[in-house]
Amino acid sequence: MNSKTLTALFTLGRKEIVRILRIWSQTILPPAITMTLYFVIFGNLIGKRIGQMGGFDYMSFIVPGLVMMSVITNSYGNIVSSFFGAKFSKHIEEMLVSPMPNWVILFGHVLGALARGLMVGSIVTVIALFFTEIHVYNIWIVISTVVLTSVVFALGGFINACYATKFDDIAIIPAFILTPLTYLGGVFYSISLLPPFWQSVSKFNPVLYMVNAFRYGFLGVSDVNIYTAYTVIISFVVILTIICLYMLKKGIGLRT
C-alpha cells in the first residue's frame, strides 16, 4: 500500500468517524436507550421469572446477545445510511472521480461501520454492568467475533446501499430480514429449547453462529460448535467482500 492510498483510507475513515460523532444523538444515543430498556424489561423484570438459561441467570445469558444485536444493527445501519446518503446527495461522486482504489472505498466505509458497531457495543456492555456481572471466558473470542460480525453486516449494508435507489430500499432489508434473523438468532434464548425441527431450521440462520460464538467468549457456552461458527463468519466475510469489490469494479448501482 503506497502513501497516497493510505492517506485516502485515513481520510475516508476519519470522515466516517467524524460523521458518527457529529450526529451522536442519532447514532450513539438511541441504541443505548433501547438496550437499557431491553435490560430492564427482559433482563430484570421478566428475566427474574425465567430463571436460568444455559447454566447462567437469564440476565447474564442475554447480555452477549443484546450487545451483539446492537453491534449488528448499528454496523449495518451506519454503512447503509452513510453510503446511500452519499449516493442520494451525489457526493459519492467525490470518491468515484478520485483515484482511490475500490478496496479503499469499501474498507473506509467498513471502518466507519466497525467504529460505530464497537462504540455502541462498548456502551451497551457498560450499561449491562449496571444490571449484572459480566463474565469473560475468552477475551480473544469476544474481540474477534464482534469485529468479524460487524464486518459481515457492514459488507451486507454496503451491498444494500449500492442496490438501493430510494429510502424504502434501505428500510426493507433491516425490517424484513435483519430484525427477524437477529431475534431468531439466539439472542434471547438457547435453541436447545426449540423442537428438533426448529433447531435444524435455526442452524441456517448465520446470526445464530455469531451470537453464540460471542456468547461463548463471555460465558464459555454455545449452542453451536465454535469452529463451525468461525467458519461460517469468515466465509461470509470473504464472500461478501468479493461481491462488494465486484460491484464497485462494475459500478453496479453507482455508475450508469
Partner: peptide, 27 residues
C-alpha cells in the same frame, strides 16, 4: 459538475480537505 454534488452538511473546508485526501494529498 453541473449539479451540486458535495455533502451539504459538511463545512466547505472539510469538503476540500476530504477531496484532497481521496487523491492522496496529505492533510
Amino acid at each position: 459538475p453541473q449539479e451540486f454534488n458535495f455533502n451539504m452538511f459538511e463545512k466547505p473546508m472539510d469538503v476540500l480537505v476530504n477531496q484532497a485526501g481521496y487523491y492522496g494529498v496529505p492533510r
